[in-house]
Design a protein around this nucleic acid. Structure first.
Length: 557
RNA sequence: GCACCGGUAGCUCAGUGGAUUAGAGCACUUGUCUUCGGAACAAGGGGUCGUAGGUUCGAAUCCUACCCGGUGUACCA
């Protein structure tokens, strides 16, 4: 693709001695392989454009471009577009192009999922785990060294609520009693404690003040690095249960993290940093330390509360510094729910005041809420929300019911694809039945399409050939043309941090293949070897595309 | 109030300032096909791209105002 751009850029230089950034688009296939609007740009730019305007510029460029031996035809069209058709061999080479490693040598930290210890993973955590992982894959594929990290609150009111209920449940501060909780029950047991603690906090004033005290106790436990007191033992043990539960969950969806950053580890660093920038960046106000975002058209937010405790803002400052220390990244990507959009703007603006490079290297992306199709009522009662495992099991059930399949790769692929196929940002309406459907734009459909392609290759007695010197017929060429888009799609997808481009592309590709397959006999045809070559490349593209999305593509379904 | 995000077919959603006719899937109508895995292919109906202006050779896309929905707006995360 860059070859083609160079051909056009050279032609522009030769004919008009101008420099224009050449952008290629993929037009409707009937118009050619590529389309280019440089003539329209040039006409604007030139001091003395030709009398025929952009149309004439396009014509003379087309005549020049077509001289290149990669190009079969180039024609001026419409108000001044140039439609370019490649020679078949050049198109086939493009269809086999390796991904552009434009991020070679770069280090990127991707932070997502971010669940809190002591609490339950909900549907939103599942969503960001899936989408964050796909983005990390894309960046890795472009050559970057990517570190996946996870930030969560192991201190704070929710932890105190849990600890309060844990101790109540145990009857006393005796850590050995925790052994009675079976390993498999630990996540649910902790979830129940959080619900109890939360309820007590809201409805029982005595409990509430006890919990507030526990909150401070947890902070000081960290400050003193206490691992010996009974209270500390209970805290550290149950906290570890949470991390074990997270690890198990991520493994079950085929994902992993390099590192967990607990808030307890970022709080002090953030606190020191914030304090060192009073009053130049942060100011004291009503006993708290704030950042006056209004100077920048943003909100003012509290970084250290009037009790001297760091807020989430300060912990995020600490996290940024820590991530930079740990990985010396070129770029940092943070994915959260979109309710944090304006919050994050303030934090990044504050960081910009004392560490502009750090702020500039950070990209925040955010997503909406995951809802179930049909709008299952979310009760306001605590603990009754859409859990990550609920989403997975609804897919499993739907797969069983609709397809009679208990294949986890299928139901997991269905969920991932259903999340990934939408542009990041809006709410996701998840429909289990739709997601596992073998008709239409779904994960299982593509997994099946891949298996079917592999099956053709296996069934044939011949080896695929590399059709480098032959001409394609119409259906073959349409397929190769679509295959040739793959490397562009994944590059654009990683540039825009938009995995959904890949979903759209893979589905379109499979439709193109089905049309080819409907009209072209493969096994037993004179052109069998050549066509096997196309089927083989198609299978590879489907598999590597799905792999980038974090979806398995087995050879047999 | 102010700010941010969204509003595209009955539903769920794509859509890079470009090209006749704004696209998919699901759902609906009809056809092909005794199937190299038909989990297919072909054709059709269905649209004031929230509304009104503006910029542009060209706007779903950019700008302005407004309407609707969601979220955020000082010591939660």
């Amino acid at each position: 693709m860059n070859d083609i751009k160079t051909i056009i850029a050279d032609a522009i230089k030769d004919l008009f001695n101008e420099q224009v950034s050449v952008e290629l688009t993929r037009p409707d296939p009937q118009f050619g392989d590529f389309s280019c609007n440089v003539a329209l740009q040039l006409a604007k730019k030139m001091a003395n454009p030709p009398a025929g305007g952009p149309r004439e510029i396009a014509q003379s460029l087309a005549a020049k471009i077509v001289e290149d031996d990669k190009v079969a035809s180039a024609e001026a069209a419409g108000p001044g577009f140039i439609n370019i058709t490649l020679r078949d061999q050049a198109l086939w080479r493009l269809a086999n192009e390796k991904p552009n490693k434009y991020l070679d040598g770069q280090t990127i930290v991707a932070e997502y999922s971010d669940p809190n210890p002591f609490k339950v993973l909900h549907a939103g955590h599942l969503y960001t785990s899936v989408v964050g992982d796909a983005i990390a894959n894309l960046l890795e594929n472009a050559g970057a060294k990517v570190h996946r990290v996870n930030f969560g609150g192991d201190v704070g009111l929710h932890a105190a609520k849990s600890m309060w209920a844990i101790i109540k449940e145990l009857g006393e501060e005796s850590p050995e009693k925790l052994e009675a909780v079976d390993e498999s029950q630990r996540p649910d047991w902790l979830a129940s404690r959080y619900i109890e603690g939360n309820e007590a906090y809201e409805n029982d004033d005595t409990a509430k003040s006890e919990i507030i005290l526990l909150n401070k106790k947890i902070y000081s436990l960290h400050a003193e690095n206490d691992h010996d007191a009974d209270f500390a033992k209970i805290y550290w043990t149950t906290r570890q249960w949470s991390y074990d539960y997270f690890d198990g969950f991520y493994a079950s969806i085929g994902s992993h993290f390099d590192k967990y950053y607990p808030e307890s580890e970022t709080a002090q660093i953030g606190l020191d940093e914030v304090k060192s920038h009073i009053p130049d960046v942060f100011q004291e106000s009503d006993g708290a330390v704030i950042f006056d975002g209004e100077k920048f058209g943003l909100h003012t937010r509290v970084f250290i509360n009037s009790e001297g405790l760091p807020t989430y803002e300060t912990k995020d400052v600490g996290l940024s510094i820590l991530k930079k220390q740990d990985y010396d990244f070129d770029r940092s990507i943070i994915m959260t729910g979109n309710e944090q959009d304006q919050y994050m703007e303030v934090v990044l603006k504050a960081i910009e005041q004392f560490a502009p490079d750090l702020s500039r290297a950070t990209t925040h992306i955010s997503h909406g809420i995951v809802k179930l199709q049909g709008g299952v009522k979310m009760s306001s009662r605590k603990g009754n929300f859409l859990k990550a495992v609920d989403v997975l099991s609804s897919a499993k059930d739907a797969n069983q019911q609709q397809n009679g399949s208990s294949d986890q790769q299928i139901s997991l692929g269905a969920v991932k694809y259903a999340f990934l196929k939408h542009r990041i940002g809006g709410d996701i309406i998840y429909d289990p039945e739709n997601s596992v459907s073998i008709h239409g734009n779904s994960g299982p459909y593509l997994q099946y399409a891949h298996a079917r392609a592999r099956s053709i290759l296996e069934k044939s007695a011949n080896e695929p050939s590399n059709p480098d010197s032959e001409e394609f017929d119409e259906l073959e060429r349409t397929l190769v043309q679509k295959l040739s888009e793959f490397s562009e799609v994944i590059e654009r997808s990683s540039l825009d941090l938009a995995p959904h481009y890949i979903c759209t592309y893979l589905y379109e590709l499979s439709q193109t293949f089905n049309r080819f397959y409907e009209g072209s006999k493969v096994i037993g045809d004179d052109r069998e070897k050549l066509r096997l070559g196309l089927v083989s490349r198609y299978g590879d593209v489907l598999q590597s595309g799905l792999k980038l999305l974090g979806i398995q593509a087995p050879n047999k379904v």
